Amino acid sequence: MSKYLLNKFLYTVDRDPELVERYRDDPQGTVTWWEAERANQILNCHVPEASTWLRFTDEEREALTGHDYVRLFALGAHPFLTLTLFIAMFERDHAEPLSFQKEYARRLAHFSLPYPDIAT
């Protein structure tokens, strides 16, 4: 398991409006593409350089393709990264102001301290 890779996915997708929409509409295709094309690129590196070993586990891939932010949190994905990305994807589907954020909090309410380790 790589919390780094989960967080890198959430971070990079959230910063690209086209990727946000792609992930919303086609999570399976987006995760598969991102893992093959972007996972091993060195983050914030301005020269073409890449590693070769980073891969999602089946559990991580399933949580990502299912938009399962509760499971991602349990796997150690950073809650601010999941929240900002999922707000961008799903807040528009909720009529009331902050209703997605309230749903996010409600669905994570069963976690108690200490929270899952989010260190990478």
Rank of each mutant, 00 (worst) to 15 (best):
T52N: 11
P27E: 08
E91Q: 15
A77W: 06
Q41G: 04
A105N: 10
Y23A: 06
L19E: 10
H110K: 12
L113W: 08
A50H: 12
S2M: 02
W53Q: 13
F73E: 02
A50R: 15
R38V: 08
R92I: 03
F86P: 04
D68R: 07
D117V: 02
A109P: 07
M1Q: 13
E21A: 12
K102P: 00
R38W: 13
P97R: 05
F80I: 09
P116T: 02
Y69F: 15
V13A: 07
L19P: 02
Y69H: 06
L10E: 01
T12D: 11
D93R: 10
R92G: 04
L43Q: 08
E37H: 10
H94T: 00
E62L: 13
L10F: 05
G66L: 01
R107M: 10
F80W: 11
P27L: 05
D93F: 07
F80Y: 14
M1K: 13
F9M: 06
R71T: 15
Q28Y: 09
K8F: 10
V31G: 07
A119S: 12
A119Q: 09
R61E: 12
W53K: 10
R55C: 04
Q101Y: 06
N7V: 05
L54A: 13
I42Q: 11
T65V: 09
I87Y: 07
H110Q: 13
W33E: 10
P114H: 01
S99T: 03
A50F: 10
E18K: 10
A88L: 11
L43N: 05
R15F: 04
P116Q: 01
C45Y: 09
S112H: 11
R55D: 05
D68K: 02
E59H: 08
E60W: 08
R61S: 14
L108Q: 03
T82N: 11
Y115N: 08
S112Q: 07
R38G: 02
P97K: 03
P114F: 01
K102W: 01
A74C: 00
W33N: 07
E60I: 05
Y115T: 02
E62M: 03
L54K: 08
E21W: 06
H78W: 03
S99A: 15
F90T: 00
A105E: 11
T65Y: 00
A88G: 07
E37V: 09
R106F: 06
A119D: 14
L75N: 06
P27S: 10
H110S: 15
E91L: 05
A95S: 14
F80K: 13
M1L: 11
Y69R: 06
R38E: 15
A88S: 14
L6T: 03
P27H: 07
Q28V: 12
L54G: 02
G76I: 02
D25K: 13
Y11Q: 08
H110F: 14
A39R: 02
E62K: 10
L98S: 12
F90A: 00
A119G: 11
P17D: 12
L6W: 04
L10G: 01
A88D: 15
D58K: 10
A105M: 08
L85N: 12
F100R: 14
L108K: 05
Y4R: 14
